[in-house]
Design a protein around this nucleic acid. Structure first.
Lengths: 218, 218, 218, 218
DNA sequence: GATGAATGAGGGTTCATTCAT
DNA sequence: CATGAATGAACCCTCATTCAT
């Protein structure tokens, strides 16, 4: 079970309440969780392929092998499922970026690790890329834009680096953060569409060089 | 105009008044053009604010002050209007980028002029930015993605520069083109949402530095 | 100018009012009549090919080379044009059937002449057949069904023949009239769809034999 | 039913109650079938009275006492309902004609039985007559014209009779088939409009005599 | 919880008809 | 009278959502 699924399942049903359920209920719980899981998987597949608007709740339910009404036993409405998928994907990506944040000693190493984490995530979750970077304003209602959240990360790191002198402040950090995030999203989405377009190393290397070259003193 | 109709017209109106005819048609033509124009303006406004799917043809017609059926006197369907708006905006932007292409003697000057053209276009056509960079696949059916067209521009220029030795080939030109275009779109869209977020000079300077720093030998 | 056109034109503008118009007006009148005539021709062509419902008033006007509004300068609405065309065609057919009514001395000759007139009319006005026998209830508003009018003719003749002893009364005249008219319409429409399906003589001979064989003593 | 769903179902419901399952589904199925049935009945009534084009899907749904969207839970579109009604009626009529095909020993008896079957069908399904013989090309897209199918029947039988010497070939079989079918349709439709116009026996007798008299040796 | 028939608001689009020019 | 842009009622159809079973 990946981190994504964990976030979806385990955030809803806190682990520490499970022991309170009698063993007999566990089968029903598992069935319910399985249905929910299948709906999420179907949502991922269909949203990735066709986008939020082109996918009907009926299609998701049908793809998941359940009745159309079942959808609403698990999600308040269509956009909620979309949000949940998006949220889970963003959590997974954030988790991976967090993991590598302090790995490298130098700034250069951190940038490169970040690029690697990003590309690897995309390679493992190709379909999530379309959803994450689909620019759907329909994820609205809950949180801010996915890209804004990523920009926020970059902005925070950049400011820290400026404070430590690792980075100069000749580039506006806000603009830079937006630029980096736009670059990431576009390159990764372009590549996810057809992974034969570039190798992992080309991607990592190019992203790293752009980010380093353009944003730091030689 | 058939022979019969000609006889009707030309017997009543002496031939020497015919040169004036274009003038006479202009009244009706102007009215038609005005309606069309209002529909386009309404489309720009509403599409920019809500996106293609959230805007109904009724809303556009109402906003333009005409009956709902009138929409279809001017556009075959909703997506045709969207395409037309997108196409016009892209043409305008392309024109401006073309204009500055050969202005600067050095590569640095060209990059900076390009950034200036981009930012100025955004400043003058704020609402077009949302439409151009909305990632709507619905403009499909006619042409490729707007961003892909811009990427194609960058790719072409980059290759030319590699040929002339102005640029090195240590960065994959395809990836670079996608990165630049993603960066542009994101930064410009972010800024257009709230122009107080940065000054024109900050934008131009930051975009220029990223592009130069990361993509050319020191 | 055929009888059809005459009926259309001359029934609207009584002949005896024409002399009252100054010569100068004749040109305008001719133009108006020509426009009207072209609309009728376009109506015939399009109705025959696609049926009343599939043809728009715009299509008729466009086909006639006039503006769409012009249609309503000549006809109150779409069904009025359809009625007028139908009416003219029926008049022409009735005229021809009248012409041959008293030609033959014997009953057999009359039946054969009638079949010949019918087939010849169809051959000369193929497109009218589709309109006449299209079973459109939309010709409503003015008159009874085309086929009913033809049935009425047959009924009248049949009754006369029974009175003179030329025909027996062992067949119900009403049913017979409907049967004959249904037979005519179907055979003629079937043939008009593809005139290579049968020769004129086959049609005449077959229709005559059915009508004679079944309805008269040997 | 997937493995997961099975576990849910079979753990709760002992296997030996499963044979009862078809019964359980019948409640919902019956409701669905009832709705579908009401829509079909409404369609028959309204199509018969006004024709395909004059009847809206809303009207059918309203007449059936369901919401307008419900129509599309049962039929892909309006013409599909029309086709289904037409098809069912034609099947029923064909079935009846088949039943009597080989009843009579003589040709005369067969013709008479056929006429009886036709008239009895019309008497029992008056409203279907308008639909079957409405000459709607909109049932198109699926099959050929209803009348053509009936003509095909007659043509086949006629040819068989010519082979066995029961019928002469002095009448073109194709034309004859069209004539008979046109006669049937017209007479039956005329009668169905107002059944007091003739008695069953008058119809049967007249149709039989026309068909026999005109198409066979004395 | 699962089901799936029913709902009905709403959207895109058509087209007969009007009327100011 | 011809024009043709404008009108707007009406239609077909979709689909997110509900709810009785």
């Amino acid at each position: 079970m990946s981190v994504i699924d964990m976030s979806v399942t385990e955030l809803i049903i806190p682990t520490d309440t499970l022991p309170a359920q009698p063993e007999r209920e566990t089968a029903a719980d598992r069935a319910r969780a399985a249905t929910r899981s299948r709906l999420i998987e179907s949502g991922k597949t269909l949203f990735a392929e066709h986008g939020l608007h082109q996918v009907t709740t009926h299609a998701i339910a049908f793809h998941a092998g359940v009745a159309s009404g079942t959808f609403y036993n698990h999600f308040k409405d269509k956009s909620k499922l979309f949000c949940e998928i998006t949220h889970a994907a963003l959590s997974e990506l954030s988790y991976r970026l967090d993991e590598v944040r302090d790995l490298g000693a130098t700034h250069r190493e951190r940038i490169q690790s970040q690029a690697e984490a990003l590309v690897d995530f995309a390679a493992e979750h190709t379909e999530m890329i379309h959803i994450l970077f689909s620019h759907e304003p329909a994820a609205a209602g809950l949180e801010t834009d996915v890209l804004n959240q990523l920009a926020e990360r970059i902005l925070t790191e950049r400011r820290a680096e400026i404070d430590t002198g690792e980075a100069t402040d000749d580039l506006d950090p806000n603009i830079l953060a937006q630029a980096m995030v736009g670059m990431w999203a576009r390159v990764i989405a372009w590549w996810a569409e057809d992974p034969s377009r570039a190798t992992r190393d080309q991607l990592v290397s190019t992203l790293t060089k752009i980010q380093l070259g353009g944003t730091h003193p030689a």
